[in-house]
């Protein structure tokens, strides 16, 4: 049954010849910034995120300790070794539904994009992809030398040759579905902090 529909669709598409156009070359020089780091921070803040810089892990811990959402968090998880106060073993979780209780989660981001304030993460950093969405507050630590100018450069870096979930995150979860008023914290994290290390 599915077989025949496939054939029908492909046949009817083949029956109509459309004038062919070349696939355009993409110009990777688009939108470069004098200071990608500053641009990233500025765009991230404009979409409701927070951008911090830290010298080392100790500095990360010191800055986290100052955040109220970290002070108030009951359950804290991390896939970055050395984060203080971690009391929730995300690696030991079998069923992602258990992650519902998690208040705070710290993970590595692979790289950041100056143009749009997004950070690339993937299944490679976490045991469950639900972690990116289910936690109340998310912190991504990104190596400060891993900031590309724009999306074109981002896709030059990415390879999609095996089964994996990858994701661009730009700010906390948000909605403006009630009268166009922006509300932070729709279904996913209520805050997103990116720490450039």
């Amino acid at each position: 049954m599915a077989e025949t529909s496939r054939d029908t669709i492909l046949q009817s598409l083949r029956a109509a010849r459309l004038e062919s156009v070349e696939l355009p070359e993409l110009d990777p020089s688009w939108s470069q910034f004098a200071d990608p780091r500053a641009r990233f921070a500025q765009v991230l803040e404009s979409v409701g995120g927070r951008c911090l810089s830290a010298a080392d892990l100790q500095d990360v811990n010191r800055q986290l300790a100052q955040r109220t959402e970290f002070q108030q968090a009951k359950w804290i998880g991390s896939t970055v070794a050395g984060v203080d106060r971690v009391n929730f073993d995300v690696m030991g979780v079998g069923d992602p539904h258990e992650l519902e209780q998690l208040d705070f989660f710290v993970a590595m981001g692979q790289f950041a994009i100056a143009e749009n304030g997004a950070v690339w993460v993937s299944d490679a950093q976490v045991p469950h992809r639900a972690l990116w969405f289910i936690v109340q507050h998310l912190v991504l630590i990104v190596p400060a030398d891993q900031i590309v100018h724009n999306l074109h450069q981002a896709y030059q870096r990415l390879r999609f040759d095996h089964a994996e979930f990858g994701l661009l995150i730009a700010g906390p979860s948000k909605t403006a579905d009630i009268e166009q008023s922006l509300v932070i914290g729709a279904h996913g994290p209520r805050s997103l902090t990116v720490i450039l290390l």
């Binding site: 143009e115 969405f133 095996h162 994996e164 979930f165 994701l167 995150i169 730009a170 996913g188």
Partner: peptide
């Protein structure tokens, strides 16, 4: 769509969840 530089989440699904 809304004047944002990109949507908050852009999920790339390659293959099923483990």
């Amino acid at each position: 769509a809304t004047g944002q530089p990109i949507t908050t989440y852009t999920s790339h699904f390659h293959g099923p969840i483990p």
